[in-house]
């Protein structure tokens, strides 16, 4: 039975429609910002993915609630901490989308900004500085694509950001004090007991690039134990091999995918930024990029 306050939010992400039926009114605002600029109003359209969120008073409790997420009729997540719900939903929809529906794009684990109309991609695994570098360049006046996942359209050879919120961690603010001004429009959540802020990039106005742009430069981020933090140009073979490691769905494409990457990177400078000093890496990258486009 539906709750009286039930509402359905519908998102369209590329060609896919996601509906989230909300029987937890206290989470409506957060869920409304789950996928920036992707809300659409026609909720009568059949959804490709359907979720619902319910909240119930805990038994014998003096006001605490338990929140549950359902995919179709199956309960897939439950928590007493309301902050966990939008984090889970955002992650679940993103994973399902990337796994099942967006396989015609090359999915790059990367941050990225736009310089002179071309994308500069920071490819690297978690913790290598993708978000910090992307945000640092946003503060320098560059447009930002995504801080985590960018897609390559192989027909147009353009880079498109996957529409996720930017994730500001507490440590990021120490390195980039200027980022504090964005925290007013960011929603705080706790994930693994660590506070992070989800910042809807549409709240930074025209500094969020959502259209496809051609690739201009790639910087491969590698965290090493070396005291030296340095940047160096890479040869073509090692560029393709290093970039390939950050293409999350490269297995889907096989040889065709490798040939595509060879072509994509043939006229694009690729650098390796290695070391373990993020502050120094920031200085190197902002120096390489200049002040603004």
């Amino acid at each position: 039975m539906s709750c009286r306050n039930s509402k359905t939010l519908s998102y369209q992400i590329f060609s896919q429609k996601v509906s989230i039926k909300m029987d937890a009114p206290d989470l409506y605002v957060e869920i409304e910002h789950l996928f920036p600029r992707k809300l659409f109003s026609n909720s009568n359209t059949l959804a490709d993915m359907s979720y619902s969120v319910k909240s119930l008073l805990k038994r014998g409790s003096t006001g605490g609630r338990t929140y549950s997420v359902y995919e179709g009729r199956n309960q897939v997540f439950s928590s007493d901490n309301r902050s966990h719900i939008p984090v889970y939903l955002e992650w679940a929809v993103t994973c399902a989308m990337l796994k099942r529906h967006l396989n015609h794009y090359y999915q790059i684990h990367s941050g990225g900004v736009v310089k002179e109309g071309r994308a500069v991609i920071f490819a690297g695994t978690s913790g290598t500085g993708k978000t910090t570098l992307s945000l640092a360049l946003l503060l320098k006046g560059f447009k930002i694509l995504s801080d985590d996942v960018n897609l390559i359209d192989h027909d147009l050879m353009t880079i498109i950001p996957y529409p996720r919120n930017l994730i500001l961690k507490e440590g990021t603010e120490d390195l980039l004090p200027g980022i504090a001004r964005f925290k007013n429009s960011a929603s705080p959540y706790f994930r693994r007991e660590k506070k992070i802020w989800y910042l809807d990039p549409s709240s930074i106005g025209d500094k969020w690039e959502t259209e496809g742009v051609k690739l201009g430069q790639v910087i491969i981020l590698e965290r090493t134990n070396s005291r030296q933090t340095d940047i160096a140009p890479m040869g073509k073979v090692e560029s393709v091999m290093a970039f390939m490691k950050n293409v999350m769905n490269i297995d889907q494409f096989g040889e065709k995918g490798i040939r595509f990457l060879v072509e994509l990177l043939s006229n694009v400078p690729v650098y390796r930024l290695s070391g373990n000093n993020l502050r120094k890496a920031l200085g190197i990258v902002t120096g390489l990029m200049g002040s603004r486009e």
Binding site: G235, K236, V237, M241, G254, E255, I258, V262
Partner: peptide, 24 residues
């Protein structure tokens, strides 16, 4: 193995085990 030529070497790729090897 497929031989994929790149400017300064090549990449060998085999679909069966999805292994890629870079050669100078």
């Amino acid at each position: 193995f497929s031989f994929i030529e790149v400017d300064n070497g090549c990449i060998l790729y085999r679909d069966a085990d999805m292994m890629a090897h870079s050669l100078n």
